[in-house]
Each structure stands twice: as C-alpha cells, then as structure tokens.
Amino acid sequence: MYKRAFKNFFTSISNLPFMIDFMEILMTNRYATKDRLCELMRRRTQVEAQIAALEARRRLSQKKDENRLKWILGNLVFDRLSAEPELAAVVRRDLPERLTQRDRDRKLWQILFPDTQGGRS
C-alpha cells in the first residue's frame, strides 16, 4: 500500500514541480557535499603544511640553542684552560683526535698550546 502511494506521488504530473525542486535539492546537496569535502581536504593540506613548517622552525631553534651552548662551553674551556691543569690535561688528551688536517695546517694546536710541537698527527 505504501509502495503504491509513494509511486503514485512521484509519478503524478501534479507533483512535477515538487519533484524538480526535490531533485535540485538532492543535486545541490551532492555537489555541496563534494565541494565541502574538497574544501576540507584543502584545509587539511594547509594545516599539515603549517605543522611541518612549525616543526622545521622548532628544529632550527633547537639547533641554534645547541650551537649557542657549544660556543659558550667552548669559550669557557678556552678561557679556563691555562688556569686549570686538569682541564688542560683532558684537552691535550682528547683534542688531537678531533683535529682535522685543515686544523693542523692552520696550526690551531700551537695557538692553544704554544709550548708544545703539535699533538698527535
């Protein structure tokens, strides 16, 4: 009974304007949903790009902080080297293996310890 009433309603010519309006609403909603989905996908891409940019900025800031600490510690060690014999012994023991050939060519060891010839080669 309901099937027949439903079928009669949608096949009746008197309901044709309603049917056209109904179909337009369905089509509009379908396209609106598709447009909304596209908008959401575009927005998600933007948010992901913003997150990636923030993470890159955070990593750069962290790297700058680490470099600053290394510079400060290096200055501290350099300034205290002549006053602290234990520190000088550690530097004399560990620094030569960290020196590159370029460092040796620039005679950095002799600048640091003018009284010695050049550490390990």
Rank of each mutant, 00 (worst) to 15 (best):
N67Q: 09
R104L: 06
S61D: 13
V90L: 11
I20N: 00
Q46Y: 05
D65I: 07
M41N: 08
F18R: 00
L16E: 05
F78L: 14
D79C: 12
F78G: 06
Y2V: 01
C38A: 05
I72E: 09
P17Y: 07
D94P: 02
L37I: 02
M19Y: 00
L99C: 00
N15P: 03
E84M: 10
A49R: 06
R104V: 10
S14F: 11
I72Q: 13
R80T: 04
R106A: 11
Q110C: 04
K7G: 04
F22D: 07
R59H: 10
T28G: 07
I13K: 12
F18K: 03
A89G: 02
L73Y: 04
L40N: 14
C38I: 11
V47R: 01
F9M: 05
R120A: 07
K34C: 06
E39S: 07
R80V: 01
S121H: 08
T28A: 13
A88M: 09
Q101N: 08
L60G: 03
R59I: 11
L40Y: 10
D65L: 15
R68N: 08
P85I: 03
R57D: 12
E55I: 05
T28Y: 14
L95K: 09
R98P: 01
V77Q: 01
V47G: 04
R36A: 14
R44A: 13
L73G: 00
E55S: 05
E97R: 15
R43H: 06
N8R: 09
R36G: 11
T28I: 13
Q110M: 07
A53S: 08
A53P: 00
L112I: 15
N29G: 02
D115V: 04
K34T: 10
R93N: 06
Q46V: 08
E55P: 02
E39D: 08
